[in-house]
Design a protein around this nucleic acid. Structure first.
Lengths: 175, 175, 175, 175
DNA sequence: TATGAATGAGGCTTCATTCAT
DNA sequence: CATGAATGAAGCCTCATTCAT
């Protein structure tokens, strides 16, 4: 990937996260990337292609994030790490942009991207099983759902107390 | 409100929920409402005005939905009704559209509309207090967050088992 | 002419003078006249009809203005009155609007309305003849031209010293 | 400046002069320039930008016209050249369009653009001073005013005898 | 690889005008 | 006589995309 390709990708990433896919014009991307508009099309074919590249990038970043959870063997640690995942990333601006983008695109294009979380779900199920929860699948499912809610409020509700909620969650799950 | 105004509102409601606000052109709305495009602007000023009218409508519908919860006195019933709120509405198409619209707009415009849920939050806090939960505010907060997650998955993830999750939740909260 | 007709005419007069014919929408006229938009069309047929009515009105007002000059018999007085015509009207707001409208419409529609000034021209020629000017037609023509310039600058150039210029003119013509 | 930019400018120039600024739609300009409508906005931002470019162009042309007068040292020649300025340009179609545009825009937008003539005014004052006119400022002012009137009638009144009037003027000023 | 001029379709909005009440 | 809902054409502008250089 050339330097300009990366500049385009980064510009698009930031803009899609800020204003959404449809609302971001290719010319805005070009301007922010300090690149000619035509170059976007040379490299990514069309606007949709740019989006796909960004989604791809997101999946890779997600993989990295999830890897730490999936490779964990201690069940309590699995749950703890999962719960802390967002809070950890909420520190730096770049991560916030990452999550914002994930959810904005989810909603704008109505694609949930289940396969991304499937591996995590399995690990959570295993963890809850080992911890003798009665309905481990449902517990895992619930926790995943909760994470969507957490992200939603964290991103959209300025006043939301993310860290407090996460502390409370850790108490509840005793992790 | 004239008949055509209502047709415009309904068409916009459906289209905004389906495709989002920006992706829905005023001409599409006009066509679906079987109305001239100009009429939209006569009645709502501009596209933004149309959106506001729809948001307003949503708040009224939300009030109706919440009214049943807020007026409930039995704490267990409060929680039960709150949890069941989505599942009940998930039966008919119109309600699904309603929720979809709420969340799509939330994300597209990044406005959370906290005041809408504030009353519900107070009632939940009271309920958890009466049920002797140790941290009623945090419990209420968590349940509200969970609901956002539930809606997110219900709307975006085709395979999501809403009713199962709700049953499980009711067990957890013993309601 | 009914009261509402007059309100429409007055509103249109003011708006056409302020913003020009094309730039003034019938809806703006209706709003300013506190009248329904349809009424304009009932009374004046279409926007052009409204314009014609206003032009007509202008001609009548011009006739009144000119009458005083035309009926004057003393040649020196004729010239003096003609020169003072604008300065006199420049006192009250209504007259300024009148002149502004005349010129704005002239330029926007490129119609000079020569016949309006023809009578005045004749009287000026007669006056210059009696005063033994060598080329009375040319003198009259020049004075009329000067008046157009005077109006132009008075209306368009905020800093223009109308009264000073008029005084100077009167000296020149010894009137 | 690309070739198409110039075509746009020329088309707009002609149309604004013929029909005025507001009455000329950008699509008309595009059609006349044999260019896509979008290109106008790429090059000039918006319709107002196009107008500004044209006004700018006008100022440059005016500078050229005035340069000949300003650099003249013989007072009589200054006045002569000034008086002849319009008549000289009235020969070719392009110059007529130029003057028409200047005045149409003046009236439509109510901006007089005094600074353009300021230099000329100074030179005229100097000329009248040297020629021992008693009130050189007023004379200059009057002559400028007269020119506005001359242009007004020349452009708007089909039957106006421009050359005759100019001859007469030259006699009056003995130039 | 990279630019930016150029396009045409479509978006939001305004407008003159008509018509039922 | 008077209203104001309703229309359709047109206006300004943006956008994704293509192409010559």
């Amino acid at each position: 990937m050339t330097e300009k390709q990366e500049k385009i990708l980064n510009a698009a990433l930031a803009l899609f996260a800020e204003e959404g896919y449809r609302s971001t014009s290719t010319s805005k991307v070009a301007k922010r990337a300090e690149v000619s508009e035509g170059l976007i099309f040379r490299h990514f074919g069309n606007k949709e292609g740019l989006l796909q590249a960004i989604i791809q990038l997101g999946e890779e970043q997600a993989s990295v994030l999830f890897a730490d959870i999936i490779t964990e063997t201690d069940p309590r640690e699995v749950i703890k790490k999962f719960i802390e995942m967002i809070s950890k990333t909420s520190q730096d601006e770049e991560s916030i942009v990452f999550w914002k983008l994930q959810f904005k695109i989810k909603w704008e294009l109505e694609m949930y991207g289940e396969h991304k979380t499937e591996a995590v779900e399995q690990v959570l199920i295993k963890a809850f099983t080992e911890l003798r929860y009665l309905q481990p699948e449902k517990e895992a499912n619930l926790l995943l759902t909760l994470m969507d809610g957490l992200a939603t409020r964290f991103i959209l509700q300025k006043s939301f107390d993310l860290d407090g909620t996460i502390e409370f969650l850790k108490q509840k799950y005793k992790v």
